[in-house]
Amino acid sequence: MSKESFHQIVADVTSQIAGRPLDGELDRWLNTVHGVGSESYERLKQACIDGVAEGWLCEREGGGIKYGRVFKAEDALHRFSVDVVDMKDIEGPHHTHPNGEVDLIMPLEGNATFDGRPAGWCVYPPGSAHHPTVAQGRALVLYLLPEGQIQFTKT
Rank of each mutant, 00 (worst) to 15 (best):
66 K>Q: 15
67 Y>G: 12
149 Q>G: 04
93 P>N: 10
122 C>W: 15
124 Y>F: 14
80 F>V: 01
19 G>C: 10
69 R>L: 12
94 H>N: 05
110 G>Q: 07
70 V>E: 07
141 V>C: 02
25 E>C: 00
19 G>V: 14
33 V>N: 05
71 F>C: 02
134 V>P: 07
20 R>T: 01
155 T>D: 08
45 K>G: 12
1 M>V: 08
33 V>E: 10
85 V>D: 07
144 L>W: 00
39 E>N: 03
32 T>E: 12
18 A>V: 11
103 D>M: 10
107 P>H: 07
7 H>S: 10
133 T>F: 00
24 G>S: 06
152 F>A: 09
107 P>S: 03
107 P>I: 03
70 V>Q: 08
40 S>D: 12
17 I>E: 01
62 G>V: 01
136 Q>D: 14
122 C>L: 15
47 A>G: 14
22 L>Y: 04
118 P>F: 05
149 Q>F: 00
85 V>H: 05
79 R>H: 09
150 I>P: 00
102 V>K: 04
96 T>Q: 11
56 W>Y: 10
43 R>I: 09
105 I>A: 12
142 L>P: 04
74 E>M: 04
103 D>R: 02
99 N>D: 15
81 S>N: 08
112 A>F: 06
5 S>N: 11
133 T>P: 05
8 Q>F: 04
147 E>N: 15
42 E>K: 03
153 T>I: 12
13 V>I: 14
66 K>S: 15
33 V>Y: 03
85 V>Q: 05
64 G>V: 01
49 I>Q: 09
153 T>L: 13
131 H>C: 14
118 P>K: 10
93 P>V: 06
97 H>R: 09
143 Y>T: 12
146 P>H: 02
20 R>S: 07
26 L>E: 11
53 A>M: 08
45 K>H: 14
29 W>K: 09
51 G>P: 03
151 Q>R: 13
115 D>P: 01
141 V>N: 03
83 D>K: 02
147 E>A: 11
37 G>Q: 07
28 R>D: 13
9 I>A: 13
154 K>C: 07
148 G>Y: 01
79 R>S: 06
34 H>C: 11
87 M>I: 09
128 S>A: 15
104 L>Q: 05
110 G>I: 09
29 W>C: 04
